[in-house]
């Protein structure tokens, strides 16, 4: 079944000096599925994300991305902006990183930078205002409009992103990531700071992205209602290693996972579970 995996993380290592943040982590994310990466604070989830999205260069191991057309890309060899440009991996940030002084629409236009650069003939054709560029720009605006509509922010398109409420900013950041037309969307705690209604809306949005766009999603999340409701596969980390993986149901009942979250020994957790049943 390895052909179905869009992302394969193979014995990933990340050291910061003497600290091993991620230790021989291996997992895979299936194509057109939602994979959740969970774990207690400081487990190394965001470090894994930063390795996948090129913000860190891993100390060891391999990260392979298999595209629909059969291309396989070694992500650990790419860095920086190339991950998004060539490998088509988009990400959002734990603490939202929009362009606050630009409008919501402009934020989505910046996300289409590479496509628009090509259409504008590396600026030269655009400077002359050729019709081909105007059409491309109009298409980009239409794509942005579509996504603004999807995240129900169409009426706030011309407002500065920094002026939007927190929940709207979260959704706008997802829309912005989707405007890069990614194969894999990496979300770092998309539900953090959202109320119950907003996180319900987020679930619908993520499911619709998976079902309609066919984008594979990898997400880090603390909000278990989100994880349990939408993820197809859950990977649990603690202290930089994988301690469990499986369906949401299987993970929820795993004593190791409960132990990690409660900060207790495994035996104690089993004892607690058995006394409960």
């Amino acid at each position: 079944m390895s052909g179905d995996h869009i992302l394969t993380v193979d014995r990933l290592m990340m050291r910061f000096g003497g600290i091993v943040a991620v230790n021989e982590l291996s997992f895979a994310a299936e194509r057109r599925k939602i994979t959740a990466l969970i774990g207690p604070n400081g487990a190394g989830k965001t470090t894994v994300f930063n390795c996948i999205t090129g913000f860190y260069r891993p100390s060891g191991g391999a990260i392979r991305l298999a595209h629909d057309d059969g291309r396989t890309i070694q992500l650990e060899r790419l860095n920086d902006f190339r991950i998004s440009k060539q490998a088509k991996v988009a990400r959002t940030f734990q603490n939202i990183r929009l362009f606050p002084g630009m409008t919501a629409l402009e934020n989505l236009m910046v996300a289409q930078h590479n496509a628009l650069m090509r259409a504008s003939g590396l600026t030269l054709l655009g400077l002359l205002g050729l019709p081909s560029w105007r059409e491309a720009e109009q298409r980009a605006i239409e794509l942005a409009r579509t996504w603004l509509n999807r995240v129900s922010l169409l009426d706030r398109a011309d407002d500065a992103a920094g002026n939007l409420p927190y929940g709207d900013q979260r959704r706008l950041e997802i829309a912005r990531a989707m405007c890069t037309e990614p194969a894999l969307l990496c979300l770092d705690e998309p539900a953090a700071g959202l109320n119950a209604r907003e996180s319900g809306g987020l679930n619908e949005l993520l499911l619709s992205i998976r079902n309609e766009q066919g984008t594979s999603i990898l997400l880090i999340e603390h909000d278990m209602s989100v994880v349990m409701e939408i993820s197809d596969h859950v990977v649990v980390m603690d202290y930089g290693v994988k301690i469990a993986e499986g369906t949401p149901q299987a993970v929820r009942d795993d004593p190791k996972v409960i132990a990690a979250y409660l900060g207790a020994d495994e035996e104690e957790a089993i004892a607690v579970m058995e006394s409960g049943t």
Binding site: F81, S84, F99, G101, M109, L116, S120, T123, A177
Partner: peptide, 24 residues
């Protein structure tokens, strides 16, 4: 043009620019 928007985006947040595939 995209290059001008990228300049302004760079001023706003360089890390986000890199995440969007902009060659900073």
């Amino acid at each position: 043009l995209p290059i001008g928007r990228a300049w302004e985006a760079l001023r706003e947040d360089e890390v986000a620019c890199r995440a969007l595939g902009i060659n900073t």
